[in-house]
Amino acid sequence: MTRLVLVSGKGGTGKSAVAAALGIASARRGDRVLVSSLLEAVGLAQHLGVPALDYEPTTVRPGLWASAVDRPGALDEYLKVQLRVPKLAPTGHLLRALDLLVETAPGVREIVTIGKPVYEVWKETWDLVVADAPPLGQLESYLRAPETLAGLVPEGAVREQAAAIGRTLADPQRTSLVLVAVPTELAVVETLEAAEGLERTLRLRPTALVANRVLPHLEVEPEAIEGLRNSPALEAARLHLELEAEQREWLTRLDADVALEYLFGLHTPPEVAERLADGLEEVLP
């Protein structure tokens, strides 16, 4: 059975890096895995070390494929394959009318987008599909889209399709949700609020919370450097100790399942993804 992992998190916490790393970790253990970007494809492409991503999956390395969901492509597939809209004469007008629908009706754009990784799951050709999902602030509107649509359309293909997508997303045997956070006040508070919101409105619980950029412990007692003559080494130690203490507070609050270590210095995006993959095996379904 194909499993789906949705990766989300506050912007700038390393969501795309973690999505890429999960794909890499899964491929390393011999899975056939697809990583798909749902909104902004740039970050995922960079972390996978490819210049760009297409709507159709392309091979990144043995076992690992990647794709990006773009609106025109997704809308086209949604209409032709999923809703089986017949090829009609005034296609131009019809497409514009449907574009209008996607622009305006609540839930339609979201269903078209989040539907894509779900179809990939339905195909049963992958072991794992990893979706680099929309950031935390928009995640709920995507996950709630099937419900939103059901409230809007009384019957017909759109409604049935939405319900089927909703069932896959809500099935814990199929779908897991990974939230990425960094141990700062802003990120932790927002992540916990979003997780609460998802549980309240959709009864959906994150399968794993991943803490990213966690500083390694510095084996220096603050008292040991007190009174020493000031120098860059001491400044760096003080900064580290204070940041570590600050992080510890927010890590406790977050209660993450996995902690990924801070990577010091310059790393290319693919290097970052490789390194993070080492720590993510336990998050894989």
């Binding site: 809703l83 009609l88 019809l94 009318a97 629908l101 359309v153 009384p154 017909g156 759109v158």
Partner: peptide, 15 residues
């Protein structure tokens, strides 16, 4: 007519 047609496909007077 295009909106009507689309609505028929979609199953509601959405458009």
């Amino acid at each position: 007519p295009v909106l009507r047609l689309a609505d028929t496909v979609l199953g509601g007077p959405l458009l």
